[in-house]
Design a protein around this nucleic acid. Structure first.
Lengths: 246, 246
DNA sequence: CAGTATCCATTTCGATACTG
DNA sequence: CAGTATCGAAATGGATACTG
């Protein structure tokens, strides 16, 4: 269980549970619709099963999550947000917008394509896509060795994502530098300009290529304007930083 | 520095810094008006100086806080929220309201009178108080041995608080069980009823006693209705709990 | 007052191996 | 698939002593 702050303060009580590492991100993943243990593992590619299990347990104890036997053919359990958990959704939105505005710049290690793939597949504009099956492959030649690509499969409006070849013919191949595609996804560069300049490249039927820019809804905070100044820091901080990383 | 989640997700980036233990509470204290290192220590009675120093440093690196040389006679520094830091205030309010609605019940150890005193002194309705100096003593006979009481001194609308005798005559003495006063402060019991029933007792000039109920503004989340069900838990969780605390 | 340095106990986390 | 048990490495945090 989370360590207490020894205060009745409602922010302290809320933070006791929500402030633990990973907890908020598990809530986000649940809020985004993941409900099975393995879906949560896919939504949070760098969490360990042990950690996820512990966090789900704490959230259950805190009354934020319930674990229910999955009805239907599918055996096993599903995790769902309770009313208390859904009460966190406005806070999550505000945190996301705050992060978009003010959080630190990205480092190369923050660009996990598995997480990107999960995000993209949650926000596909299926209305704008062809009927039947469409298979997209995203390819990032400069990405980490073991996960340079992912696939998104849309069948009649149902979107799935995988990090192993899906065994279907590819309808559209999207190739880009990872950082550049993430910038587009975050709303910091217009997709159109990147396509026109050939920095994000498409291969596939011309009709699909033409339609593709309408398929991506982008990050849900992409519309929020970034306010954080550039990378410059005060001398004092730079000195302290250097010193500590001796 | 905070460990990264390896994701570009804006909630992850925000949580990296804000999710660390104590960080959010430091922001709350700053938002409530504390700016000196020692005021922050008083606002957060259970933080260590080492921890506070570290957290202020991280917040400064994250651009949430600035450290400025204190102008005027007072030497030393002041910590203030930046625009980014002030951007967190709506989130703090929502977190507080969520905590009021849904957070766990209190345990005896959560009732630190020093924190209570700090909170109370921030929310005195000085308009309703006499001109000149008023000295209140709060006394909790069942509180922790070393901090059963605190004092609040109001001089012409300026409120101060201390945990050592202020060396002035007491105008009004307030005595109560700690838990009961906290319940009132949190908005879970009406002050009037507790006074009438003699469970919160006043000693001092009758005019002050009559006026006192208007002096306390209560916790800023006191108006929010609690939704969390009672202490019952599912059998499964109880079992798991017992097992782990072997 | 306003912190920082250091040391040690505790906690946390991830990897691996394992189970119904 | 859906987790749990265990173990070692690393991080965390508090107490104490110290400084300008």
């Amino acid at each position: 269980m989370a360590r207490s702050y020894g205060q009745y303060c409602p922010v302290a009580l809320a933070t006791e549970i929500l402030g633990e590492r990973w907890t908020m991100l598990v809530v986000v993943a649940l809020s985004d619709g993941a409900s099975r243990f393995n879906d949560l593992l896919r939504a949070l590619p760098r969490i360990s099963a042990t950690m996820l299990s512990q966090r789900l347990r704490s959230l259950e104890e805190a009354g934020v999550v319930v674990r229910v036997r999955e009805s239907g053919s599918n055996s096993g359990h599903a995790y769902r947000l309770t009313d208390a958990g859904r009460g966190l959704e406005p806070i999550i939105t505000d945190l996301a917008n705050w992060g978009q505005r003010w959080a630190r710049d990205l480092e190369p290690d923050d660009l996990d394509p598995r997480f990107l793939g999960w995000s993209v597949h949650l926000r596909m504009n299926v209305e704008a896509m062809p009927k039947g099956r469409t298979v997209l492959q995203f390819e990032f030649p400069d990405g980490p060795r073991d996960c340079r690509r992912f696939w998104i499969i849309v069948v009649d409006g149902v979107v799935d994502m995988c990090i192993k070849p899906p065994g279907h013919a590819i309808d559209l191949l999207v190739t880009s530098q990872l950082q550049r595609f993430v910038d587009v996804w975050r709303g910091f560069r217009p997709l159109r300009a990147e396509l026109d300049a050939g920095r994000i490249r498409l291969e596939g039927a011309p009709a699909l290529q033409r339609s593709f820019p309408n398929w991506l809804l982008l990050s849900s905070a992409a519309h929020v304007e970034r306010c954080r100044p550039g990378r410059e820091r005060s001398v004092r901080l730079r000195a302290a930083r250097t010193k500590r990383s001796r």
